[in-house]
Lab assay of single mutants.
Amino acid sequence: DHDVVPEDKFQETLHLKEKEGCPQAFHALLSWLLTQDSTAILDFWRVLFKDYNLERYGRLQPILDSFPKDVDLSQPRKGRKPPAVPKALVPPPRLPTKRKASEEARAAAPAALTPRGTASPGSQLKAKPPKKPESSAEQQRLPLGNGIQTMSASVQRAVAMSSGDVPGARGAVEGILIQQVFESGGSKKCIQVGGEFYTPSKFEDSGSGKNKARSSSGPKPLVRAKGAQGAAPGGGEARLGQQGSVPAPLALPSDPQLHQKNEDECAVCRDGGELICCDGCPRAFHLACLSPPLREIPSGTWRCSSCLQATVQEVQPRAEEPRPQEPPVETPLPPGLRSAGEEVRGPPGEPLAGMDTTLVYKHLPAPPSAAPLPGLDSSALHPLLCVGPEGQQNLAPGARCGVCGDGTDVLRCTHCAAAFHWRCHFPAGTSRPGTGLRCRSCSGDVTPAPVEGVLAPSPARLAPGPAKDDTASHEPALHRDDLESLLSEHTFDGILQWAIQSMARPAAPFPS
Rank of each mutant, 00 (worst) to 15 (best):
G436P: 08
W422C: 11
G241V: 11
F426P: 05
D377L: 11
L455E: 02
G402C: 12
K362N: 02
Q257F: 13
Q325C: 09
S339E: 14
Q257R: 13
P397G: 13
Q392E: 05
L352K: 05
Q309E: 09
R295T: 07
I276N: 13
I500Y: 03
P464K: 07
M503C: 11
W302I: 10
H479N: 10
P249T: 13
Q501L: 03
A366S: 07
D279G: 09
L455V: 11
S502T: 07
A370Y: 04
E343Q: 15
A499L: 10
H490W: 00
V344D: 03
R423E: 13
P327R: 10
Q309C: 11
R318E: 08
A353R: 11
G434M: 08
D482N: 05
G346S: 14
C401D: 04
L333C: 04
V329K: 11
P322E: 09
E320H: 08
G280Y: 12
D493A: 03
T408V: 08
W498L: 06
L385D: 07
P298Y: 11
R270G: 14
P450A: 06
A460S: 14
R432C: 06
P466S: 11
A370H: 10
Q313T: 10
A251M: 09
E330H: 12
T311R: 11
S441R: 07
G244L: 09
L337C: 12
A463W: 15
S254T: 14
G354Y: 15
G241E: 05
L376G: 08
G465K: 05
P427A: 12
H425L: 04
P317D: 11
C404Y: 03
W422G: 09
C386H: 05
T414Y: 04
L395A: 11
G241I: 09
Q242K: 11
C278H: 10
P374F: 13
Q325R: 12
P397H: 14
V451E: 05
H490Q: 09
G300F: 10
R505G: 05
P433D: 05
A288K: 11
E263D: 06
P459E: 09
L385F: 14
G444F: 14
P464R: 06
A340T: 15
L275D: 07
L373M: 14
P348Y: 14
P317L: 12
E314N: 06
E350L: 13
S379E: 06
M355T: 08
R318H: 06
D279Q: 12
L478H: 09
G336Q: 14
T358R: 12
A248K: 15
P464A: 12
V344I: 12
L364G: 07
G434H: 14
H286F: 04
L462I: 13
W422M: 07
P383D: 00
S502V: 01
C278P: 14
Q260Y: 09
P365T: 13
P324A: 10
G391R: 10
A467M: 06
T435D: 12
